[in-house]
């Protein structure tokens, strides 16, 4: 038996919007730790890891570890039927082939339940090693989204170069080229507006902008984004989910032949 009650239902709606275009089908894993997901995109270039910790739910009952295969487009359709202020409860029976999403309006005058069919998904679970990254950039998530969107109108790939002087986003295309440099800036009124660059050594990596743009669909989840890089390793683009956990996107770099 599984029963997870989330007071801030809009968080789950935002999570689905953040991942549904990258991943078609995925297993949601439920354990004593929390509600989590790990999935790759169809071409195995990117990986998304989601964690919503048990403590973040108002009520969290998970009698035994459960893996529920869901089509994310269908799940998104159902969650779109929940109001932004609704409380969402996820319910499932052990060994059942459906999951139920229950939506309660804030003043309890409307209660809906939507039952969705589960599916069997054969997915590989990858071990993500703990890594000390050589460059960690924290910046406003909207600024990062803006840069990715702007550069993708010029080129298909972005070179992200981080050094003590700042972080440079560069692209080239048929019509020309573009560079955006962000310098460390901590003299801001609100901490979430700061750009903080921690560098062990300079890093320069090339990525497909199509994926970066897809990751920025998680922008509504957090005011800040953290981009962690090491030479010749996948980048991690992380959006923290307040009080609950995170959504992390891993993207394999483009490598010169």
């Amino acid at each position: 038996m599984l029963e997870l009650r989330l007071l801030q239902g809009s968080l789950l709606k935002k999570v689905l919007e953040a991942i549904k275009d990258l991943v078609t089908d995925a297993n949601f894993d439920c354990s004593a730790t929390g509600f989590s997901l790990q999935a790759m995109d169809s071409s195995h270039v990117a990986l998304v890891a989601l964690l919503l910790r048990a403590e973040g739910f108002e009520h969290y009952r998970c009698d035994r570890n459960l893996s529920m295969g869901m089509n994310l487009n269908n799940m998104s359709k159902m969650l779109k039927c929940a109001g932004n202020d609704d409380i969402i409860t996820i319910k499932a029976d052990d060994g059942g082939d459906t999951v139920t999403f229950m939506f309660e309006s804030p003043n309890q005058d409307k209660i809906s339940d939507f039952e969705m069919k589960l599916m069997d998904i054969d997915s590989e679970h990858l071990g993500i090693p703990e890594t000390e990254y050589e460059a960690i950039i924290r910046m406003p998530s909207q600024e990062f989204a803006r840069i990715c969107r702007d550069l993708s109108t010029i080129g298909d790939t972005v070179v992200i170069s981080a050094s003590k002087e700042g972080v440079k986003f560069s692209t080239k295309g048929d019509i020309g080229s573009a560079n955006v440099v962000c310098r460390q800036n901590t003299s801001v009124d609100k901490p979430e507006d700061a750009t903080v660059i921690e560098i062990q050594q300079p890093v320069s990596l090339t990525f497909a902008l199509r994926y970066m743009n897809s990751f920025t669909k998680a922008t509504p989840l957090s005011n800040t984004v953290t981009v962690s890089m090491s030479n010749e390793l996948p980048v991690v683009v992380e959006y923290k989910i307040a009080e609950m956990g995170y959504i992390r996107f891993y993207l394999a770099p483009k490598i010169e032949e």
Binding site: M40, S43, H44, V45, A46, L47, E124, H125, L126, G127, I128, P129, T157, T206, A208, L233, P234, Y250, L251, A252, P253, K254, I255, E256, E257
Partner: peptide
């Protein structure tokens, strides 16, 4: 041209 790496070549199967 640079070649796109795959995530599964960096992270091992559990």
């Amino acid at each position: 041209d640079a070649q796109q790496g795959r995530i599964s070549s960096f992270f091992k199967k559990k």
